[in-house]
Design a protein around this nucleic acid. Structure first.
Lengths: 137, 137
DNA sequence: CCCTTATTGCAAATGATTTGCATCACTGGA
DNA sequence: TCCAGTGATGCAAATCATTTGCAATAAGGG
């Protein structure tokens, strides 16, 4: 990973470019996939025994706030976090094996309609589709 | 509320028609709106000091399992529960005042497409749209 | 009306996430 | 390059919604 790009990005958003933040970013970039705080923590801890789960949470929360990552509530308890890059999209989740597939967003026209009908200002939306993948079926 | 309908419905689903279950159902029917476990608990407790929050949770979970109510994760922490009746729909939530508006489901065609593209069996989906209502804006 | 079994009260546990505080590491300026 | 100020982190403890174990209770079929 080219750290300098990320160092700049962090500074640009008013965040110090610390070791822990860069390590967490590196995992998110390399996986390029939704991960839980615990996931990230486990991956990093062996080479970084001082890292705490609370630091991972604090970091992810600041990343969410600065729109560097997006928080997803895919399954009941644990939240997942994914890097905000590439196309806006949603997820299809296999209820048996937990596979997560990115899917594109079908809501553009629908939101226009909604604005006309409700006079709301639309800020954001969440869409998740649950099913069973061909292998688990 | 005509209790006998609900007593039958519970029995039909293999649940005993207990006082607490009927009380919880009554609140859900009268509000006809998504409520949290704590919401329901607070409404009932004054006339029912023995009721426990854990009973409300257990009841709601069994209702979800039997498809009598639907669980919604609208805001970060607390889950909401709403009676499963009427049209399948989703929710538009005002991020300032918390107003919740039911909206209809735009996903039928999209799911067909998804089945063709992914070979998944689609079980369910969740859609929430967040915005600011005209009054709060 | 009784017996069986599901349900509830109650208290304690759980698990993800957050927080308080002292220490440490980053960064911009000298 | 070094230093001070401030934000970030380690650490431990707290929080908060939700769940669970167990003994006591209530529902409902016979």
């Amino acid at each position: 990973m080219d750290q300098s790009i990320w160092i700049d990005k962090l500074k640009e958003k008013g965040l110090k470019a610390t070791q822990q933040r860069l390590a967490i970013l590196e995992v998110l970039v390399e996986e390029n996939f939704p991960l839980s705080a615990q996931n990230i923590f486990s991956k990093l801890r062996r080479n970084n025994p001082n890292l705490r789960l609370s630091t991972v949470y604090r970091t992810l929360n600041s990343f969410v706030e600065k729109k560097i990552v997006r928080k997803l509530d895919l399954i009941d308890k644990e939240s997942f976090f994914e890097l905000l890059s590439g196309e806006h999209h949603h997820h299809l989740i296999c209820m048996k094996c937990g596979e997560i597939i990115p899917i594109d967003c079908p809501l553009k026209d629908y939101e226009e309609e909604l604005i006309d009908n409700t006079d709301y200002t639309i800020i954001d939306h969440r869409l998740k589709i649950y099913g069973i993948c061909p292998r688990c079926r």
